[in-house]
Nucleic acid binder design. Structure first.
Length: 698
DNA sequence: CAACCTCGT
């Protein structure tokens, strides 16, 4: 998604590789210099560097367009923070941001990407030994901390977009506090030694103090400052055009209808500029699209130049790209979007925002092991983020479809993810870092006691922890090394014993991505036929296996075309012909390769059970015993662990066949409580394969 | 019978 510029990384017309022979090179450099000088942050460079030198922890509040993400790392480099091979690390919540910002900064520094400036995200590492400014995802930095607990190659770490409070950012904030303490301690011990051998950190590197910079959009600077013992907070001005925010007089009973009315009101009464409408999901977006088309027909012919477009994460990339193209002359675009348009992508041309005030949010109930997707009011921060989207290119207007007094009642910010998710992965990682007291760990927002207890229990049942909560060796260590849900890591270790590791590698790689079949509601005959061709009535896991294997066989047959770009093209063609989501399958193949590398490093021999699907299903039962469900008299299912009454999700290949007993991977409540990704098992296997959990009695 | 907000190792 190349044109999805984010934050301060304005998409640039400049080429990525500097070309010294180009006649326009001089003016290009001049433009970059001028642009950098014009950024609000440029005028406070000296002050910022002084504050970083004085303070070990600094909070920087920077509004959109301040230039903090691209400029501060360059200031630090110029001030000498990268001497002796040290790096400045900058973490971002999203891959696309880490990648585009790094490219932009490399351009500004006039160096090829991967030298002085680089980025590291999963499956794509452009850094080298000469990299000094390293942009990465928060998850990637967290993985680095597991390997090098002192993060000894960094002199400064900048946590960007900290206000988003992803689970990775929250764990990092706590971990970095500890790293800073540990490194200072190491330095002090060294200086107090009399005859002193030099104390060294991980991998023999010299330990020096770590500078920490937390960057956030406004509102909650005080939260971070207090968390870091009253750390100094600096404010950097942004550069945004004013946005006129308008509210309704009365609450709306039907926000979809209110959105439609507002869209047409803008179209008829406001001057030119595209409209961005925030809705909750695919169904709603597609129905509003139809309604806009319908109502357009009732307008006089010269007023019909309104072009509805849709964007949401599940849309194939080619169709996503369409919203970036300018509307034809005379037309006004109306982009119907989920919250993908809130932070992840920036659509050019938007002058009007219609904010329904609601969002679909995921929560997790640790007791039921169930996720929920609910339509809930946005937070104030979210509402501000949405209205800001109208002021990127000029003064704008935002229509909030609720009264102003309702805005005042909203939560300041969205609940941090760490309070809404399954903690088993986070806890396993902390345990592998030797942090045993999870309840006493210094999180900025503590997860509930119940959520911690439940995750500890799950890890114990999976064999990752001992009965007294210590890391089980070597299984727990091995599981912590694998970048995936502990249940799947456990499945790989078991598969090694069941001689179906090859099959399980494919399975977990496929389970790690969603929507293999691009649109489950796709009703075209050929799409249904194609899907039926892959579908196994034994289980969705077997279906995924056959999709992956058939693509492999197809690629094998056309092996002579072996350049990477060609393989990619052939793969996309195969996916299109078979109505499979190529983005998902590409991701699954990358995951397979990476995880296979890890298990081979652990000394596992990747063996296959061939066509012995019985043994494979037994392994699934042994792996996923915590999530089993049994059919009831009325055709519904009872989840054995929680006792919940659940239904098979319509996208499952087992939706019609309704077997007596299944294991499943996901329990999610939307309109009903649905189980997804399931495979038929023999109920007797549970007692046989997980006797510690299931008694042999009925 | 009836169906997927958004990210990430």
């Amino acid at each position: 998604m190349p044109s999805m510029a984010q934050g301060e990384a304005k998409s640039s017309v400049l080429s990525n590789k500097p070309n010294p022979k180009s006649p326009s090179r001089f003016s290009m450099r001049q433009k970059i210099t001028e642009h950098r000088k014009s950024l609000p942050i440029a005028s406070v460079e000296k002050r910022l560097i002084e504050e970083v030198q004085k303070n070990d922890i600094l909070i920087i509040v920077g509004e959109t367009g301040s230039g903090k993400t691209t400029q501060l790392p360059q200031f630090l480099f110029n001030a000498g923070f990268c001497r002796e091979g040290k790096m400045v690390g900058i973490s971002q919540p999203r891959r696309i941001a880490a990648m585009t910002v790094a490219k932009r900064v490399a351009e500004e520094c006039d160096v090829p990407l991967g030298q002085k400036v680089g980025y590291s995200v999963r499956f794509d590492d452009t850094t080298s030994s000469s990299t000094r400014l390293k942009y990465m995802t928060d998850g990637f930095l967290l993985r680095e901390a597991l390997v090098d607990p002192l993060l000894s190659r960094y002199s400064v770490i900048i946590v960007d977009e900290a206000h988003e409070r992803t689970v990775h950012t929250d764990v990092l904030l706590a971990l970095l506090k500890k790293v800073q303490r540990d490194r200072s301690k190491a330095v002090n011990e060294r200086s107090s030694e009399t005859g002193g051998g030099v104390l060294r950190g991980c991998q023999g590197r010299k330990v020096s103090p770590l500078k920490l910079i937390i960057m956030s959009a406004s509102l909650d600077a005080r939260v971070f400052s207090e968390y870091y013992g009253g750390a100094k907070a600096l404010h950097v001005q942004g550069r945004q055009f004013p946005v006129n925010v308008l509210y309704t007089v009365h609450p709306e009973t039907d926000y979809v209808d209110a959105a439609l009315v507002t869209i047409f009101q803008i179209h008829m009464e406001e001057k030119e500029g595209d409209i961005l409408v925030f809705l909750t999901g695919q169904d709603e977006i597609e129905s509003v699209e139809r309604l806009v088309q319908e109502r357009l027909q009732h307008l006089p012919e010269d007023k019909r130049m309104l072009l509805p477009m849709t964007i949401f994460a599940g849309l194939p990339s080619e169709q996503q790209m369409r919203v970036f193209a300018p509307a034809p002359i005379g037309f006004r675009k109306v982009v119907l979007a989920t919250n993908i348009a809130e932070t992840s992508i920036t659509i050019p041309g938007i002058r009007y925002v219609v904010d329904t005030g609601v969002v679909k949010a995921r929560t997790y109930d640790p007791n039921k092991g169930m996720e929920s997707l609910d339509v809930v009011p946005t937070s104030k921060a979210q509402a501000l983020q949405r209205s800001g989207r109208a002021g990127r290119e000029g003064p704008g207007k935002c229509f909030r479809l609720y009264p102003e007094r309702e805005f005042e009642k909203l939560e300041d910010s969205t609940k941090p993810e760490i309070k809404r998710c399954n903690l088993s992965n986070v806890i396993l990682q902390l345990k592998s870092l030797g942090i045993d007291d999870i309840g006493g760990f210094d999180f900025i927002d503590k997860p509930s006691r119940g959520a911690i207890v439940k995750a500890l229990e799950e890890l114990r049942l999976l064999g990752a922890l001992t009965d007294d909560g210590k890391l089980e060796k070597p299984v727990g260590e091995q599981m912590a090394r694998l970048p995936m849900d502990p249940v799947y890591s456990r499945a790989l270790i078991l598969a090694n014993q069941f001689n179906c590791l090859e099959e399980m590698l494919i399975t977990v790689a496929m389970l790690n991505v969603e929507s293999i079949f691009y649109d489950p509601r796709e009703k075209r005959e050929e799409a249904r036929t194609s899907r039926n061709h892959f579908t196994s009535v034994e289980g969705d896991h077997l279906t995924y296996l056959s999709v992956y294997r058939e693509l492999n066989e197809f690629l094998e047959k056309r092996k002579e075309e072996n350049s990477e770009a060609k393989v990619d093209k052939i793969m996309r063609k195969w996916c299109k012909d078979n109505f499979v989501n190529s983005r998902s399958l590409k991701h699954a193949r990358d995951t397979y390769r990476q995880i296979r590398g890890y298990v081979e490093q652990m000394g596992f021999n990747v063996s296959s059970c061939g066509n012995d699907m019985l043994e494979y299903r037994r392994c699934l039962a042994a792996s996923f015993f915590l999530k089993a469900a049994q059919r009831q008299m009325d055709g519904t299912y009872r989840a054995l662990e929680s006792g919940e009454i659940v239904h098979i999700h319509p996208i499952s290949g087992l939706f019609r066949s309704k077997p007596e007993c299944v294991v499943f991977n996901e329990l999610m409540q939307t309109t009903k409580k649905y189980i997804k990704n399931l495979t038929r098992i023999d109920p007797l296997w549970l007692a046989e394969l997980a006797p510690h959990h299931y008694k042999t009695e009925e």
